[in-house]
Design a protein around this nucleic acid. Sequence first.
DNA 1: ATATGAGCCTGTATGC
DNA 2: TGCATACAGGCTCATA
Length: 272
Amino acid sequence: MPELPEVETTRRGLAPHLADARVTAVTVRERRLRWPVTDGIEAAVTGRRIESVSRRGKYLLLALDDTSHLLWHLGMSGSLRVVPPETPVQRHDHVDVTLDDSRVLRFNDPRRFGSLHHVLGAPEAHPLLARLGPEPLGPDFHGDRLHARARGRRAPVKAFIMDSATVVGVGNIYATEALYLAGIHPARAAGRIPRNRYRRLATAIATVLGEAITAGGTTLRDFTDADGRPGYFRQRLRAYGHGGAPCGRCGHPLREITVAQRTTTYCPTCQR
DNA sequence: ATATGAGCCTGTATGC
DNA sequence: TGCATACAGGCTCATA
């Protein structure tokens, strides 16, 4: 389940392998991803040189030398890795991008929630990216902005921060963790939280995601390996998945509820 | 405009 | 042991 930290870790793992590589072939075995992979992507991308690998939210962007981009989303079960030539194709290996050193950038996604687009124009204008909020680890993300955007909102704060127009990269796990860290009740109406607590929440979101990126970097450092992504950050989670266990701060049992159709763990004592 | 619910898909975990 | 069912998850679209 790639969240932003996993996507960033993937980006860092791929970048040195892909930068300056030339695409010699594109093979799409399964076009039915989140959106159908367009016909003709093979011809359009073959022969191009990859200039860089960047990330926006949970989207990966491979910049090609004709100013177009490959826009890739891993969904929740997708993975991208560079494998040696002749690596046997396995179930759910949907897309291969063969490089000029014969290695293969291979996309595997059992649930097919991922997607792949070839974007010709400016990627930030693409419909999937145009409405995204700030990067949680960037300079534009801070509590004052959260506070301003939350004005008048009655939806639970957890749903509010999981909305990618508010801030990108905060999925269920990290929303749960950040609210726990910040001491905010997940079901509280977003518009009823004061500015100073939003500052604390913004810090908590950045902290949690930053820590996870650091942890991810240790596990996924070599993307040519066949091993995948075990629950490296899982052991660090303080709230998510620990319903019933004692709170690490006060000892009160953590409670599990559903907020915005998502399982949510919180401490009824520490989170208000 | 905001808010909510459906739906996509399949591996894993649970229940009988 | 086998089978059935529930659930998880990110994200967009449709509907209130």
